[in-house]
């Protein structure tokens, strides 16, 4: 039996799970669409982990991150629940110790993280707009009838420069349609789109920041060689895409879980694989205690509420805490 540390990154689009051994080697690596069902996605991932490695590993620590980190953390009994920025930065500095700039583009968000001496010194996240994130690329790939996996390669075959407006998905889309009508090839348009996304990303998130190499590009979108090439053109420097680029958040939080458990002298809160049989039911209701009408999220395990959040006053959160 080897000790393993599990990281779970529940994002809006994908759910990623990794297991690392004591020496930080990736033993298991799972990337799947969340499809709006984070609990099912986590269960499926953990079941696969159990099936593949269950007899050989002893799970010694678990961490969760991503927008669904709270829910995931409650479900598995996480030792650490961390935001995505910290998780990504920890993973990247592990693989590329001298990294200075991280470009991360995920399903519905994008971020830039600046690092110096392995410390996060600055970061920016897209605020409300999803232009230039994975979801938009998905949508355009579908519209053009190009499988998303082939999207980047196709862009690389283009020899024409087509300028597409990248400010806003609505404009980008109408611009693309116009360019199609002019007779540009799909490859040209896709390349134009890749460049527009990168331009938009740098303008939005990199504004006023000094971007220094080494550059690392990660997140689901980093699989897209077209976007990688566009980044390299934009910054005028090589951009590294790490081997596990699409599960970096999960790796980061697994590393943090290891750190945390070691701090606690080896005790993990992990509920065990058996907890997968347990029935977790998330639900939400509008609290009418005051005029704020908060949407409160409630998670029940076998019929007993084990976590609640979303209430501004903290009344429900406290109630559950005291009950446990």
């Amino acid at each position: 039996m080897v000790k393993a540390y599990v990281g779970i990154d529940v994002g809006s689009v994908s759910t990623n799970i990794v297991a690392l051994d004591e020496n930080y080697e990736v033993l298991f690596n799972y990337y799947a669409r969340t499809n709006g069902q984070p609990l099912d996605a986590i269960k499926a991932g953990l079941e696969k982990l159990k099936k593949e490695l269950g007899n050989n590993i002893n799970i010694s620590g678990v961490g969760t991150t991503g927008s669904g980190r709270q829910l995931a953390g409650v479900m598995v009994g996480a030792d650490v629940i961390k935001n995505e920025i910290t998780a990504h930065a920890v993973a990247t500095t592990h693989y590329v110790p001298d990294v200075r700039t991280i470009f991360e583009i995920g399903g519905q968000d994008s971020k830039i993280i600046l690092i110096k001496d392995q410390m996060v010194i600055d970061f920016a996240m897209n605020t409300v707009c999803a232009a230039g994130t994975g979801s938009f690329l998905d949508h355009q790939a579908e519209r053009l009838g190009v499988p998303i996996e082939k999207f980047g390669e196709l862009a690389l075959t283009s020899t024409n420069d087509v300028r597409i407006a990248g400010r806003c998905t609505v404009f980008a889309e109408s611009d693309m349609i116009a360019k199609q009508q002019y007779g540009f090839s799909k490859a040209d348009i896709i390349k134009g789109l890749c460049k527009a996304l990168v331009r938009n990303y740098i303008n939005n998130l990199g504004r006023g920041k000094k971007l220094e190499p080494p550059f690392v590009f990660q997140g689901g979108v980093a699989a897209n060689v077209g976007i990688k090439a566009a980044f390299e053109e934009e910054v005028g420097h090589e951009v590294i895409v790490p081997k596990y680029h699409n599960v970096m958040g999960a790796i980061g939080v697994a590393l943090l879980a290891k750190e945390e458990v070691e701090k606690k002298k080896g005790r993990t809160n992990f509920r065990g694989f058996n907890s997968l049989q347990t029935d977790f039911v998330p639900s939400s209701f509008i609290c009418t205690g005051c005029s704020n009408n908060c949407e409160v999220i409630k998670v029940e395990m076998n019929g007993t509420p084990i976590a609640m959040w979303g209430d501004r006053c903290g009344m429900w959160k406290e109630k559950v805490k005291r009950a446990i």
């Binding site: 961390k82 935001n83 920025i85 910290t86 410390m119 970061f123 996240m125």
Partner: peptide, 14 residues
């Protein structure tokens, strides 16, 4: 929440 946490984390780790 994510922003505040990430910022505070950054300062704490630093």
């Amino acid at each position: 929440q994510t922003r505040i946490e990430a910022f505070v984390d950054m300062l704490k780790r630093k």
